[in-house]
């Protein structure tokens, strides 16, 4: 293969682990491409970037990315990443996981990481269902959608993820669909340069399960749905961002504010309270 033919993303992948396990038409790989692109543009020292995933389809991302990479337990990527970051504050720590992992089993950790404004980048691939286990109902499944454990249609209210993140204290919040590759890259790049908790929600197709069960067609049909129904509204009021079944998806950057992180708060407060006796941490 000539050097020109090499895919630029290969520098960021563990090529000895490719092919990956994702289905054809799945959107996770596209988000990984955007992530690789953002890492390259960021000019960060990649030796100092670590990636942490939980369990699930998106949970496998950590296994394919050529960074210090951690595949952890279901829902616990965020507290694991919290320990990793606080253990060595010079690291840039990215959590890459799915909607079920982060907002279902790991919901409590997500809200507390936001509350603390922990300096983490959280990339959440939202495919509206628990895909690894066969398409069960998730906390993000739209009402009326059909899932394997909601065989007569989902009757629960789903999370409005950006609203949840903002309410809990996240300082950077964006949502895109996988169709918005360049915007996803830009958001990840901004998040990598942001201090505090960033959340990027990326709506992706799960062709094999969610789409098939709901007779939504193949990957192309879903991209078409995103194309026709997504609306970019930067700075939109996060209360208006609910996603209804096959209806409008509002995208954009909603929150981007400066606020001291957990570590900033700790060092500032203890320096003020304890004076010279305090040994500031990680600075």
């Amino acid at each position: 293969m000539s050097p020109e033919a090499k895919n630029p993303i290969e520098n960021f992948l563990r090529m000895d682990r490719i092919p990956h396990i994702w289905c054809s038409g799945c959107g996770i790989g596209t988000v990984v491409s955007s992530f690789a692109d953002a890492l390259e543009k960021s000019r960060l020292d990649l030796d100092k970037v670590a990636i942490v995933s939980g369990i699930g389809c998106t949970g496998r991302v950590a296994g394919y990315v050529k960074l210090d990479s951690f595949h952890t337990t279901h829902g616990r990527a965020i507290p694991f990443a919290t320990g990793l970051k606080l253990g060595n504050p010079e690291l840039k720590v990215v959590v890459f996981s799915g909607d079920g992992d982060i907002f279902g089993i790991g919901g409590n950790h997500f809200i507390h990481a936001c509350r603390r404004n922990m300096d983490l980048v959280v990339i959440c691939v939202n495919n509206f269902n628990y895909a690894m286990t066969g398409g069960q109902v998730a906390p993000t499944s739209p009402e009326k959608a059909n899932l394997s454990t909601a065989p007569y249609g989902n009757f629960e209210y789903p999370f409005n993820v950006p609203y949840l993140a903002e309410a809990c204290g996240a300082t950077y919040v964006a949502r895109w669909t996988v169709l918005h590759m360049r915007q996803v890259t830009t958001s990840i790049l901004e998040a990598l340069n942001h201090k505090g908790l960033s959340l990027i929600e990326v709506i992706t197709p799960c062709v094999t399960l969610y789409a098939r069960r709901n007779r939504l067609g193949d990957g192309l049909n879903l991209l078409k749905y995103y194309y026709e129904n997504s609306e970019v509204r930067h700075g939109a009021d996060t209360r208006t961002l609910d996603i209804r079944f096959q209806e409008k998806i509002t995208c954009g950057k909603f929150i981007d504010v400066e606020k001291p992180t957990f570590l900033d708060c700790m060092n500032t407060h203890l320096t003020k309270t304890l004076g010279e006796k305090f040994r500031p941490y990680g600075v």
Partner: peptide, 21 residues
């Protein structure tokens, strides 16, 4: 570093992360 986590699951997950650091 001392951090009071949101529960014991988070506590041990943070320990594993910090040990890797």
């Amino acid at each position: 570093m001392f951090i009071q986590m949101e529960d014991e699951i988070a506590s041990i997950a943070a320990l594993i992360g910090a040990s890797w650091s």
